[in-house]
Each structure stands twice: as C-alpha cells, then as structure tokens.
Design a protein around this nucleic acid. Sequence first.
DNA 1: TGTACATCAGTGAACGCGCGTTCACTGATGTAC
DNA 2: TGTACATCAGTGAACGCGCGTTCACTGATGTAC
Lengths: 212, 212
Amino acid sequence: MAWKPSEREARGYHHGNLREALIQAARELIAEKGPAGFTFADAARSAGVSAAAPYRHFRDREALMADVAREGFQRFEAMLAAGWAGGKPDPITAFHNVGKAYLTFARTEPAYYAAMFESGLAPDVTKELRASADRAFAVLRQAADTLVALLPQARRPPALMMSLHVWSMAHGIASLFGRGDAGRRSLPMSAEELLESEMLIYMQGLGFPQKV
Amino acid sequence: MAWKPSEREARGYHHGNLREALIQAARELIAEKGPAGFTFADAARSAGVSAAAPYRHFRDREALMADVAREGFQRFEAMLAAGWAGGKPDPITAFHNVGKAYLTFARTEPAYYAAMFESGLAPDVTKELRASADRAFAVLRQAADTLVALLPQARRPPALMMSLHVWSMAHGIASLFGRGDAGRRSLPMSAEELLESEMLIYMQGLGFPQKV
DNA sequence: TGTACATCAGTGAACGCGCGTTCACTGATGTAC
DNA sequence: TGTACATCAGTGAACGCGCGTTCACTGATGTAC
C-alpha cells in the first residue's frame, strides 16, 4: 500500500471544505443512528475537527440539520425530475417513473430522507429549506398538470389534489416500508410494486387509460 | 381556593401508579417536543419522582417508549374498530369511517402517533409491541376482506394489498399534513377531505359502486 | 518578487450542566400466625 | 386484633461522562503596495 498522509497531516491546519464535510458527516451519522442519533460534537469528530470548529459554519445543530435537509430536497428534486423526464416516453409511464424515483430516493438516501421528513424540522425553519422543498413538490405538481390535461375537460380532477394524493401514497409507502434501515415492517411484495399497483388503481379511478 | 395538598404530600412515599404516570409524562413530553425531545430523567421529573425511581418499572428510556407505543396501538386499534363499526351502516361507508378514524387518531393523539411511527423504535423491539401493532392493522385488513367480497370474484384484488394501499394513504396524509403540531405543511383542503377523495378515487378504480 | 498586514478558519482548554446509572438506605404495605 | 417480618417501591447522594458553548489563541491564506 502506498504511503498516505494521515487525514490531519494531509489537510493541515485549515480543512478547506469543512462545511460540506460536516453535512456529509451528519448524513453518515443519521444513516447509522437516525435523525436524532447524532450531536454537534459527533459531527465535528467525524469530520476530524475540534468541537468548536463547526460554529464557524453553523449556528447550531438545527442549522446543520436544515442544511442537510435542504441539500436533500435539491437532490430529490433532481431525481424526481429525472423520473419525469419531460413526460417521456409518454405522460402516464413517466408519472409512474416519478413514483419509482420517489421510492428509489427514499431507499438509497435514507439519511437525506430522514432529515427532510423525520427530523422534526419545521418545513420553514429557513426560507431556503422551504423553497427547496417547494421546488421538489413542484415537479410532482407539474407532472400532474400534464396528466390531467389528457382527460376530457369535464372529468379533470384538480391537479393540486392529484399531486397531493400521489405524494401521500409515495410518502406513506416510503416511510412504512421503503427504507434501507433495519426494523422496518416487511412485506409480501416490494414497495415499488405496492406503489405501482396503488397508482394504477388510483389512475383507473380517475378514468385514465393504461397507456396513452 | 380550597386547601389542596401538594402532590408529594398527597401521594406520600409511594406513588401508587408510577408506571402509568411515567407513560403519561412521556406522552406529554412527546407532544410538546417530539419523540426525541425527552429524557428518562425528564419523565421522572414530570411524574414528580426521583431520577432513580423509573428503573423500578422500565429498563431504560427505550423500554418506556415501547410501552407508550404499545398503549398507543391498543387505543388505535379500538379507534379503528369503532370507525369500522362491524361494517355498519354499509361496508363502503364504514371503510371511509376507518380512514377518518385513522386521521382523527393521528390528530388527537399526536404523542401516541409519534411514539408508534416516528420514534425510531424497531417494530418488534418487544413481542408485545409487535402484537399490538399487528392487531391494529388487522382491523384494516378485516375491513378490506369484507369489502373485496362485495366485488364479483373475477375482479377481486388481494385484500392484503388493498389494506396496505389504504394504510399507506392514511399514514402518508397523517404524517405530511394531519397533525396538531406546529410546522406541518398547510393545505388548501383538510386532511380528511384529502383522504376521503383519495379513497373514493381508489375504490372507483377497483370498481366499487359509490354505495352498496 | 518580496514584504506587511488583515482576515479567515481552525485549535484546545475551560466551564457549567444534565444525563444515565448505581447504591445503600428507608418508609409503606401486605401477610402469617 | 396485634405483632413480626418480608417485600416492595420509593429516596437522595454520588459518580463519570459527554455535550454545548465561549474564549483567547494561532497557523494559513489572500492582497496591497
């Protein structure tokens, strides 16, 4: 194995990117022990820095948590948008893909997901957090807009309502069944299958054809 | 104001019902500050007892939390069963009432709800917890059994799947919008209306008539 | 290119605090006779 | 009905620990000239 400087030697007195390193450390600790399972001091320790250092970047633990959540919503938005893919190959398939992307995010990024939805943070503890959460929801909302437009005018549900319905399905499944962490409830089918079938039945109820 | 003995004077050396008092104290603290927002010592203090006393009744904080959750599931089961009311006046109406009961529970008992679903407890940290959770779910499951039997045999969905769908809807709405605590996301419609419409569309998709 | 200086982002020691946990104890209660 | 005794459910003092937070400090970096 080639010689590698110790982390401390390598970085010297200044860390260089402590802010991001703390967010990263917080994510790892949340993934390990849940959103309540770490302290400000823990995060500093994980980042290889003294307990006083984080104060240069975050007012307190909550401010750090809010930034983890904000970053999470940004990636969440990107993931949902990638699922939607501008409504390709067709809006209905794309809508199902948004649902899949939702669950994939919750499964592959349980720490972000926990910070976003289970950390006890108020949704508008900061303007930035609120805005990034709204932008993520807007992806779902916009997909719903496109979908309802496929229906004859007389039978169009409110797109906002539809997007809230789908959000609640996906969030319900993700938080009950769809997480990497141990101890979740187990199921006779995958979370993805469960959401897929649920959305299918729901959309049937709205009068959508299976394909467009 | 009439003379009233201080709590300590009134109860004397022995508390009499400390176990229940600690569960009650935990509930109040959870309602105030969230499931992570209290310590074992806090609970003792709230119950008016020394910090060592809880050890006579609970191994640690987690054991106390598990008992709060267990008690919560028992009341939850009762509430859902009351909503179902044996399928009266008709199964479809009764099914909607189960959904309403779900949200009512989450709203009126946010502390129980948090202990049950958001405390980070593993669902089977104790046999008793697991069993009480299963009994609550069984109410929903049994209602679904009754409902699917209304459909022509060829179009019956699996009742387990149906009950998981409805559970995820209700849980999703409850945890995103339907709580008493501050900081939840606000909505253009009530959580109840949202769930009612969601279930209606879903059941339409399964081919249920509006009434039976 | 070199030097002086301001600014920034860390350190590490210190503090007070509350928590979890143990322990020998003690007051109250229940029961055998 | 009274007494002795076992058991139970509390007390309160003590401990070690880690956290949050402040502070004067210092090493590194950037910039003006």
